[in-house]
Structures are given as structure tokens and as C-alpha cells.
């Protein structure tokens, strides 16, 4: 069975690109356009991995990350934080909050897929 990935980002174009990319690599994709939606879908679908943008309306990616990590039953979900902010402080913050990985935009598609595969133990 394919792994499930949740894309949480408010930029439509980026969502489109990520969706195409992930689907092409055999992942099932669900989409959230803001932080609240992201939480709801995580709860519902229990995806294996979440691609989390930081700058989202209603609830920031950091908050979502924190809340997911706070829950015992959601601990297994991998979280990859995506952001255009590239300062070391932001990276540390993300990892400190429990993210498994931190990737800056713009990213290399190949790299992104490779990392996701690695996290989910998927060999392509």
C-alpha cells in the first residue's frame, strides 16, 4: 500500500507542483491550505508524512508541528518543514519543535523525493 503524504501550504502553485511530484513517485496525496485544515486532516487521515509550510494563515507550521508532536498517537508521523526562511534560527526552531527534517525553498525535486523516501524507508 502506498504511503500517504499530506501537503500543507497556502501557495496554490507550490501545492500543484508538490502534488504532481509526489503522485508521480507513487504517494497518495492530501492537501491542506491552512494550519487548521492541516490539523484536521492529520487527525482524520493519519498520513505517514506531512510536508508542512511554516507561513500559513490561521495557524503557523510551527504550531501544527508542536501540536502533532504533543500527541502520543501522532508521534509516528514524519514531519518535514518547508519554508522560504533560511536563517539558522528558523532551522533550529523547527527541529527543536520536533520536525524530522527541515527544507528550504526553493528545493531540488530530486532531493526532496530522496529525503522523503529515506524517511519513509521506501526504496525506489
Amino acid at each position: 500500500m502506498g504511503k500517504q503524504v499530506l501537503i500543507a501550504d497556502d501557495e496554490p502553485n507550490i501545492v500543484t507542483a508538490l502534488e504532481f511530484l509526489l503522485q508521480r513517485n507513487g504517494y497518495e496525496v492530501s492537501i491542506a491550505r491552512n494550519g487548521d485544515e492541516a490539523l484536521k486532516l492529520i487527525e482524520q487521515n493519519r498520513p505517514d508524512l506531512v510536508l508542512l509550510d511554516v507561513m500559513m494563515p490561521l495557524r503557523s507550521g510551527y504550531e501544527v508541528c508542536q501540536m502533532v508532536r504533543a500527541r502520543e498517537d501522532l508521534r509516528h508521523i514524519k514531519i518535514v518543514v518547508l519554508t522560504a526562511k533560511g536563517r539558522p534560527a528558523d532551522a533550529n526552531k523547527g527541529l527543536a519543535l520536533g520536525a524530522d527534517l527541515y527544507i528550504t525553498k526553493p528545493f531540488s525535486n530530486r532531493e526532496l523525493i530522496a529525503k522523503i523516501n529515506g524517511l519513509l524507508d521506501v526504496h525506489s
Binding site: E11, N13, I14, A17, T83, A84, K85, G86, P106, F107
Partner: peptide
């Protein structure tokens, strides 16, 4: 941030 966002789409 504002510069990187469109760049992300373009690159992807």
C-alpha cells in the same frame, strides 16, 4: 520569503 516563494514554483 516573498522572493523565494515564486522561485520555488518556478524551479519545481
Amino acid at each position: 520569503h516573498e522572493l523565494r516563494t515564486p522561485l520555488t514554483s518556478i524551479r519545481a
